[in-house]
Simulated assay, not measured.
Amino acid sequence: MALELYDLTHRWGHGMPEWPSSPGVNVLVKKFHARNGLYETEFEGIMHRGTHMDAPLHVTENTPTLTGYPTWRFFGTGVAVSIPKRKWEVITAEDLENARPVIQEGDIVMINTGMHHKMADTDDYYAYSPGLYKEGAEWLVEKKVKLVGVDVQANDHPMATKLVDHGPGPTHPHLIDEYKQYTGREVTEDFPYWEAAHKILMVKGGIPGIENVGGDLDKVTGKRCTFMAFPWRWPEGEGCGVRIVAAIDPDQTFRFGGGN
């Protein structure tokens, strides 16, 4: 069998880079071999850390939780596309339309902007990242894709989050002035909606969005693959870490069993 498997996730654990909010993930060793004869850890923190998936409930009240996504959305064919972006650039509908391989209806889509190489506890990754916004999310919903992953800090551009004057923000008010100095425009001119991509993808489209894709993403970019990404079976969950696997069969010799 010539099946090739690639892990598209970042490491998870104590000291990992985290979105600038609180609380952080803290991992405590509760038992260890020299004293207890076994190793056991305990962690505290929120689910929105590292490579993870949001549920509609995270951004809109009275909407589905993690188990509201049908399981068929987490497995299937799709594409990993290269859409290189720099500081504060937007992944546009035109970018998605022109991406290669072509994004087709029913695809799982992994977007490689190049930012996963910069994942760290820095403003460069979390505050100055590019990202999706309203028009790109609307294009993906209209295309009826199955699932979307992106290698940036969130499903939304950072200027559409609470880092600036949205929702409970601004938590990073200096970014408002920085953005105006950098672009000559106000944040609210370019990003009037709070987390529009989250709400359009998940609430309107029922499409899971995975944030902080990374790992072997470059190795499958430009290819059509089979993707697998499963969150926990958590009926009350508003978000959850996921492990994403991309599979390629160069020899076309692998087949799933028929159940007989």
Rank of each mutant, 00 (worst) to 15 (best):
M159F: 15
G206Y: 02
E97I: 13
V213L: 10
S129G: 12
V150C: 12
G149A: 14
M159S: 14
D54L: 00
A160R: 06
I210K: 01
W88V: 11
T67R: 04
V81S: 01
G37D: 01
W194G: 04
V27N: 03
Y182S: 06
I103C: 01
Y126A: 06
K118G: 08
P84W: 10
I176L: 06
N98S: 12
F254R: 01
M53I: 15
T171Y: 09
T171C: 00
N112Q: 09
E142S: 13
E236R: 13
E44L: 14
L8P: 00
G206D: 09
W234A: 13
A2G: 09
P17L: 08
P168S: 10
E195L: 08
E189G: 11
R35V: 09
H117W: 09
P130N: 08
N212F: 07
V150K: 03
V90Y: 11
L57T: 07
H198Q: 12
F254G: 00
N260V: 06
T122V: 10
D177R: 10
D107Q: 01
I46A: 07
E42C: 03
E178P: 08
E238A: 09
V59T: 10
K204M: 07
T71H: 10
P168D: 11
G45S: 05
T253W: 03
R35K: 11
H58M: 13
R255K: 10
G106E: 02
T122A: 12
D95I: 05
G149H: 07
T113I: 11
E4I: 06
R49I: 14
L147R: 00
G258S: 10
L28N: 09
K87C: 05
H58T: 11
M115G: 08
A2R: 09
M1G: 15
A93W: 02
W19H: 10
V102G: 00
Y6H: 15
P23D: 03
I210Q: 01
G45C: 03
K219D: 13
K144H: 14
G68W: 05
Y126E: 03
P64A: 05
K143M: 08
F230L: 11
M53F: 00
R255P: 00
G136S: 12
D165H: 11
M110T: 01
E135S: 12
G205V: 05
L3I: 14
A127S: 14
E94Y: 03
K143A: 15
A247N: 00
F32I: 01
F75N: 06
G259D: 08
T67C: 13
I91W: 03
P20F: 12
L66G: 01
T71L: 13
F32K: 07
G209N: 00
A99R: 05
H116V: 09
R73T: 08
I207R: 02
L132W: 02
Y69C: 13
I248F: 11
Y128S: 04
L66M: 14
V25Q: 09
D121V: 04
D124T: 14
P250A: 05
D216Q: 07
I46C: 08
E89Y: 07
T161L: 04
L217Y: 02
G239M: 05
G206R: 03
L38V: 03
M115Y: 15
T221R: 03
L217C: 12
H157M: 10
D216F: 05
A55T: 02
